[in-house]
């Protein structure tokens, strides 16, 4: 039951986007996010939309998958739309009932916000769908390496992320086992009032935590046995190497975003 959870949502493939250097992909995604937030004209969204669509076509990620990533945030989208519709207003009143007043400005604003959020989610989903969690961690470590100068534990953080990713399936399996064990002893986990259900989680979480600590200790010993001594002097099996493709990809994204910003400024 719990095994269906997928984290990282990597969708293996061999497209241009998949093969792009993960560091460049992260930077391009950040560029997209900044542009979408900074822009407030319709044209910014159009250009951003074309960009996202282009990436989607190139990556050959099925639209259905992207829809799946959007579904959980539908309530938020709806909520944002309603709020904007009600509280943003100008003089052009479309419809009025008692204290509720719908205006052209509000309508525009809510459509604008919805499109912006959709593009944000789809854009960042495309990053995680086309990049394996390991590469993503490596890229984050590499991008954040300048922070080592201010004694920020970059390597340790990346190591923690990758160990967390490694142990998600193990701990999920363990949770399943503990739940079965507690059910076998008569625990009711999936019925009753909310408070009862929350209380029923305690006998699951306590053993889970205890075993997680035990695992952590054993893992630490095993890592030491394999000569782990932090990031100092460590080499990597997979080197991140930027090639021509990555620079071209970055240049294209940069042009798109620069175009969007220019249009945004000009349209004011």
């Amino acid at each position: 039951m719990l095994k269906d959870i997928t984290i990282g949502q990597y969708f293996p493939g061999d497209s241009v986007i998949h093969r792009m250097d993960p560091r460049f992909k992260i930077v391009c995604t950040l560029l997209l996010i900044v542009t979408l937030f900074a822009g407030n004209s319709l044209w910014t969204l159009v250009i951003g939309g074309v960009f996202v669509l282009l990436v989607q076509i190139l990556s050959r990620i099925p639209g259905k998958l992207l829809w799946k990533s959007l579904r959980p945030i539908l309530p938020i989208l709806l909520f944002t739309a309603v709020l904007n519709l009600l509280f943003v207003g100008d003089d052009e009143v479309l419809w009025e009932w008692q204290f509720i007043k719908l205006t052209m400005g509000g309508l525009q604003m809510s459509v604008f916000m919805i499109v912006r959020i959709i593009l944000l989610i789809v854009g960042s989903s495309l990053l995680t769908y086309t990049t394996s969690p390991i590469l993503l961690t490596d890229a984050i470590e590499s991008l954040m390496s300048p922070l080592k100068g201010i004694k920020f534990p970059v390597h340790e953080m990346a190591m923690m992320m990758s160990i967390a990713l490694r142990f998600i399936p193990t701990l999920i399996e363990e949770t399943d086992k503990i739940m079965s064990a507690q059910k076998a002893r008569g625990a009711t986990l999936d019925s009753g009032k909310v408070m009862e259900r929350i209380r029923a989680l305690i006998p699951i979480l306590v053993p889970l935590f205890v075993s997680a600590f035990r695992r952590a200790e054993e893992l630490a010993t095993a890592m030491e046995c394999r000569c782990y001594r932090g990031g100092e002097g460590r080499t990597r099996l997979r080197q991140l190497k930027a090639g021509a493709r990555d620079y071209i990809g970055f240049a294209v994204s940069f042009l798109f975003m620069a175009g969007a910003v220019t249009v945004n400024i000009l349209s004011k």
């Binding site: 990758s162 095993a222 990597r236 099996l237």
Partner: peptide, 30 residues
């Protein structure tokens, strides 16, 4: 050293990455 519980000594999310863990720590050339 190899321990009892295989789950608690595998570090990486991919088999070959895990095997590479020790040589990476030793600073061996890629």
């Amino acid at each position: 050293m190899v321990f009892q519980n295989p789950d608690n000594q595998i570090v990486a999310t991919i088999v070959e990455e895990d095997v590479a863990f020790a040589p990476e720590n030793l600073g061996v050339e890629p």
